[in-house]
């Protein structure tokens, strides 16, 4: 068995060793339900699709994904087990990959548990189930992007709270980077290519199409390369900053 799989298994079952897994799953399901039915106006829209459900995922994930990733490395630093892990003859990239995949699979599990919504919408109407599936896959990709950035922040500090806040801040930048809030800061002086680049990094813009069930290869590639970039950054950080 590859080392990344052994790490993945340990981390994934680690979520269930404490009440964290259950608290997280419950919170995720309750919040996504509230967002869908109250803020999203699922019934009022009278449309047989899950757009009200997916629309709020960038905001829901902004808080929940850093919570899921904060312990990945901070805990190891705090308890000193990082010294054990780093001397077990495991490649750093396998550690980073294993931990990330554990969190990503767990997010996938949480997302999967919203399946009653799919039944509901099929019961009430005649939805495009292909679009729903696309929405789910896109949402999972989005979760992966948050988790990769958050696990990078977690690798920086032994303080889990700091890792949570830091990850939230970092992810927030990418959520709103297409928004006037961020772009206005550059409009008057920065070159156009910079503005284009910043706005192209926006999770909200990228996810809008996906939440409607339209998936663009460029968006998929964006999220996948975003994940890869943060994982590579994590490997580098762990290489440079091993102790404390």
């Amino acid at each position: 068995m590859k080392h990344w799989r052994i790490i993945l298994e340990r981390e994934f079952s680690g979520y269930f060793a404490t009440p964290l897994a259950y608290v997280f799953l419950l919170t995720f399901l309750v919040l996504s339900g509230l967002f869908t039915f109250y803020l999203g106006g699922f019934y009022e829209s009278e449309q047989a699709n899950l757009q009200p459900f997916f629309t709020f995922h960038p905001w829901l994930y902004l808080f929940l994904m850093p919570a899921l990733a904060m312990r990945l490395w901070s805990e190891e630093r705090k308890s000193g087990t990082i010294e054990l892990l780093m001397t077990l003859a495991i490649r750093r990239r396998e550690m980073v990959l294993g931990k990330f995949l554990a969190a990503w699979l767990f997010a996938g599990l949480a997302l999967g548990l919203t399946f009653p919504l799919v039944f509901t919408v099929n019961f009430l109407g005649d939805p495009d189930n292909g679009a729903i599936l696309t929405g789910y896959l896109g949402s999972w990709l989005l979760a992966g992007a948050y988790l990769a950035a958050s696990s990078f922040v977690s690798a920086l500090s032994k303080n889990t709270v700091l890792a949570f806040i830091g990850a939230l801040g970092l992810c927030f930048i990418f959520v709103v980077s297409g928004h006037a809030l961020v772009l206005d800061a550059f409009t008057n002086w920065a070159p156009q290519w910079w503005l284009d680049m910043v706005s192209s990094m926006s999770f909200l813009t990228r996810f809008q199409a996906i939440s409607r069930g339209v998936i663009d290869v460029r968006d998929v590639l964006f999220f996948l390369s975003f994940i890869l970039a943060w994982l590579v950054a994590s490997v580098i950080v762990l290489e440079l900053k091993k102790a404390d």
């Binding site: 340990r10 680690g14 060793a17 404490t18 000193g80 087990t81 054990l84 001397t87």
Partner: peptide, 13 residues
């Protein structure tokens, strides 16, 4: 084989 100072192990396991 290495026993780090304070014998850190994964406490929840």
């Amino acid at each position: 084989g290495y026993l780090p100072e304070g014998a850190p192990c994964y406490g929840e396991m």
